[in-house]
Design a protein around this nucleic acid. Structure first.
Ligand SMILES: [Mn+2]
Ligand SMILES: [Mn+2]
Ligand SMILES: [Zn+2]
Ligand SMILES: [Zn+2]
Lengths: 132, 132
DNA sequence: ATGTAGTTTATAATGATTCTAAATAAAGTG
DNA sequence: CACTTTATTTAGAATCATTATAAACTACAT
């Protein structure tokens, strides 16, 4: 399978669980946003096997560290993750509690004029809250 | 005191606890960012009375609803609040885990070109992550 | 003063996330 | 292939921020 090599190249052993999670996360043209609980549901539906919640957490964190996922800062009691790891911005629909990608073309260039000594910019992200 | 009226005008009874929390939050020229636990510490230090944690939560949420505080979306296990309720952006120093205000003049104008039917923009916030 | 609705409080409950330690599986060695 | 080593999975417990509960208290109107 295509994920065995990807995992091995990342220094992660290609276990059955990790491969299944890869299939749920990356076997799609569209990227998406998810919480751990939503991911658990997707896994349960797609594969009929059960992966323990601890493994889902472990795997998501491992993938995040390797740069295959990223966290989206949102005021929510649950952490949101994104399979789109490119630099991009978000709408957050407050009613639906859903994130929507904003392509960079949807936002003009952003110019951060202020500098902080000894610090460099790691990321610049816009969150646009939407109400009905 | 100056806060009695402000509270009454907001439909909030001016209790001893709320006035003390107002003093900690608003008796300063500089605005600041805080978590509930940091606020609890400040209250303990400034006033020598003890306000229950439940009241701190209740009051912060009441003030947020009235628009005297706002929440800042950050990936943290604790919720961050801001006494600066104007539209503004943030640096987030990943090492110090501290927020720093970016004035609007520090960021060029932001133009969100995409629209979502039936939704209107409630806020636009930039988070600039800083690394050392 | 009395009554009512709002507020505070200690404490319990909740729920997302992390930890633990034992069982299992992958990789390395000869 | 044995055999060893090391990483991973797992169920369940622990943690910890936040919210709920319900009884005591307080601001305020009459
Ligand atoms: Mn937050
Ligand atoms: Mn978050
Ligand atoms: Zn996204
Ligand atoms: Zn701020």
């Amino acid at each position: 399978m295509k994920y065995r090599e990807k995992l091995r190249n990342s220094g992660l052993r290609p276990t059955k669980q990790r491969i299944q999670i890869c299939e749920v996360l990356f076997d799609t043209d569209k990227t998406f946003h998810f919480t751990i609980n939503e991911l658990e549901q997707k896994i349960k539906k797609k594969t009929n096997t059960k992966i323990s919640l601890a493994t889902v957490y472990n795997t998501v964190h491992a993938f995040e560290k390797k740069g295959y996922l990223k966290q989206i800062p949102i005021n929510s009691n649950q952490t949101y993750f994104d399979t789109n790891v490119s630099d991009h911005h978000h709408f957050y629909d407050l009613k639906e509690e859903k994130l929507i990608d904003l392509e960079n073309a949807d936002v003009g260039p952003i110019n951060i004029k202020r500098k902080i000594d000894g610090k460099k910019i790691k990321s610049v992200e816009i969150l646009v809250r939407l109400e009905s």
